[in-house]
């Protein structure tokens, strides 16, 4: 396994941070009228995932899915347009928790834990057709207590499915702390099924990459699933507008301080390794410009046609209304 390119990781994480900030700003302007879950603080996991994924791999993500979509290479403008309630990735019908792309194959679900069975089915379909292909089932720490995830681990182990169960452990299921909701160690959750588990520091792309490595290798070589748990912290509330009174200020300040913030921490590390500050500043500026460009392009995507709100329920329109084809 080659090492992750940290300078490239920094550039990408800067893009991810700006992307999520732009989406957060769109909530304030009212371009997004509904619930919005951002992945700020969790960029190191997505960037390591990006380094591990092949374009033919699939990702099934959660209610906090944007960075995983970007990591797989989903068209950022179509993605952003969907988030901005335009006729984007899902024609404005999916929204930010229900993003679907066929190529690359990405989907997500707003139901906690529901991504795991879907990922197993995707892997089942692909395992004979395209051996070596991997399906990533993203979960949060909260979803690891869902029966769907346990059932899926059993199924994946039995059928040696090429699945990587990637758990983003940001410490909270909405307001409930992990230690209040979760018994035992998350990385051990696959142990009874014979599934190896890897715990890592989810704020360090190199550590996440190192943990994902054996999991992807195992899946690609047909040996079955793995569990990877990446510990991190969400910098925003559960959703935009969350008063976030449940997390102690000291805890937030600590996790979000420059030495622990995944982005500034990596920057400091690159600086210490001799990367010129101007280069890092340039990466920041490029990220800013890139996201601004996507935003402009996304804002020019038309809004969905209200007359087509009843389309796409079935293959043929009108099936529910009793209209004969």
């Amino acid at each position: 396994m080659t090492a992750i390119d940290l300078a490239d990781a920094y550039r990408t994480m800067a893009v991810y941070r700006r992307f999520e900030e732009a989406v957060g700003a769109a909530v304030v302007t009212g371009e997004v009228h509904g619930e919005m879950h951002l992945g700020i603080g969790q960029e190191a996991i997505a960037v390591a995932l990006r380094a591990m994924l092949e374009p033919t791999d699939a990702v099934v993500s959660t209610h906090r899915p944007h960075l995983h979509a970007l990591a797989l290479g989903v068209d950022p403008v179509a993605l952003l347009a969907e988030l901005l309630e335009r006729s984007g990735l899902s024609g404005g019908k999916g929204g930010h928790m229900h993003l679907f792309s066929r190529d690359p194959q990405f989907m997500c679900t707003g139901i906690v834990g529901a991504s795991a069975p879907l990922a197993c089915g995707d892997a089942l379909a692909q395992q004979r057709r395209d051996p070596g292909r991997v399906t990533v089932a993203v979960a949060g720490d909260g979803s690891m207590n869902q029966g769907a995830v346990f059932e899926s681990m059993n199924l994946a182990a039995l059928w040696r499915l090429p699945v990587v169960f990637l758990c983003e452990d940001n410490g909270y299921g909405i307001s409930v702390r992990r230690d209040v909701a979760t018994a035992g160690q998350l990385a051990d959750r696959g142990t009874p099924f014979g599934i190896p588990g890897h715990a890592c520091d989810g704020t360090d792309p190199e550590a996440v990459y190192a943990a994902l490595g054996p999991a992807f290798e195992r899946a690609r070589s047909g040996d079955g699933p793995s569990v990877v748990v990446a510990t991190c912290y969400r910098f925003r509330g559960h959703y935009e507008g969350d008063a976030d009174t449940y997390r102690p200020k000291g805890e937030k300040d600590d996790w979000m301080s420059a030495p622990r913030d995944p982005l500034s921490r990596l920057r400091a590390r690159l600086e210490a390794a001799g990367v010129p500050v101007v280069e890092l500043d340039a990466a920041d500026a490029a990220a800013e410009a890139e996201v601004a460009g996507w935003l402009e392009a996304a804002r020019s995507v038309p809004f969905p046609d209200v007359d087509r709100v009843r389309d796409d329920v079935y293959a043929a329109p009108g099936a529910r209304q009793g209209v004969r084809a």
Partner: peptide, 20 residues
């Protein structure tokens, strides 16, 4: 399948979305 309706019904959906 195991007696895990969530997993195997969900897997059927995932497999259908992947072309089966």
């Amino acid at each position: 399948t195991p007696i895990s309706e969530t997993a195997f019904v969900g897997a059927a959906i995932g497999a259908a979305q992947a072309g089966l």
